[in-house]
Amino acid sequence: MTLELYKEVALTLDLSEYQLKAGDIATLIDFVPHPTGGENGCVLEVFNAVGESIAVVTVPVSAVEALRADEILTVRSLAQAS
């Protein structure tokens, strides 16, 4: 599937520095080229369950995937770093 701007995507890896886990949903807000010719990136905005923005992160394109019709959303608590 092709990734589209302003569509929801799922993370494929954990981002512990942001308390995000593989499977978390984010909105793809931009594509960015790698500054030294490596893998291009995606800028994502992450929202909590009530629609409040909680993070904006940049990840490699390979760290996200389009949502599929055979998937179901779930809810988890955002664990606070200790």
Score class of each variant (00 low, 15 high):
A26M: 05
P60R: 05
K7F: 12
E4R: 15
I25F: 03
P35F: 15
A55F: 07
P35M: 14
R76W: 03
E8K: 12
P33H: 08
E65I: 04
A66N: 12
T2C: 07
L15H: 10
A81D: 11
L78T: 01
V75R: 13
K7V: 07
V43N: 04
L5D: 05
L5P: 07
T2M: 12
E17N: 13
R68V: 00
T58G: 08
P60Y: 07
V75D: 02
E65M: 08
A81Q: 13
A10F: 05
V61C: 10
L3D: 08
I25G: 00
L28Q: 06
K21G: 03
V75N: 04
G38S: 10
V50I: 15
V56L: 07
V59S: 04
D70R: 03
T58M: 12
E71N: 06
L44I: 07
F47I: 03
A79G: 01
L28G: 03
P60N: 09
I54Y: 01
R68G: 01
A66Q: 09
V43T: 10
V46D: 05
A81H: 11
V9Y: 00
Q80D: 11
S53Y: 00
A49I: 06
A79P: 00
E45R: 14
A26S: 13
I54Q: 06
Q80N: 09
A49M: 01
L5Q: 07
I72Y: 08
E71I: 02
R76S: 08
S77E: 09
V75G: 00
E45K: 11
L44H: 01
A81R: 14
A55R: 04
I29K: 14
Q80W: 00
L78S: 04
F47Q: 07
E39C: 11
V64F: 02
L20G: 02
L11P: 03
E52A: 11
P33G: 11
A10V: 06
L13K: 11
T12E: 13
T27K: 12
T2L: 13
T2H: 12
L13D: 09
G37A: 13
N40E: 15
T36R: 15
V50Q: 10
V43D: 09
K21M: 14
S77F: 03
F31L: 11
V32G: 10
A26G: 13
S77G: 05
L73F: 09
G51T: 11
P35N: 15
D24C: 06
A66K: 10
C42N: 03
V57S: 04
V64E: 04
D14L: 04
H34V: 14
C42K: 00
A69M: 05
V43K: 09
L44T: 01
D24I: 09
A26N: 02
A66M: 08
L3K: 14
L73G: 05
S16H: 11
P35L: 15
E8S: 13
S16G: 11
Y6P: 00
V64R: 02
L28N: 02
T36N: 15
R68M: 05
L67I: 14
L44C: 05
K21I: 01
L20V: 06
V64Y: 02
E39D: 10
E17K: 12
A66F: 03
T2P: 15
D70G: 02
L5H: 07
A49P: 00
C42S: 12
Y6T: 13
L28S: 02
G37K: 14
E71R: 10
G51D: 06
F31M: 07
N40P: 14
H34M: 10
G38K: 10
Q80E: 11
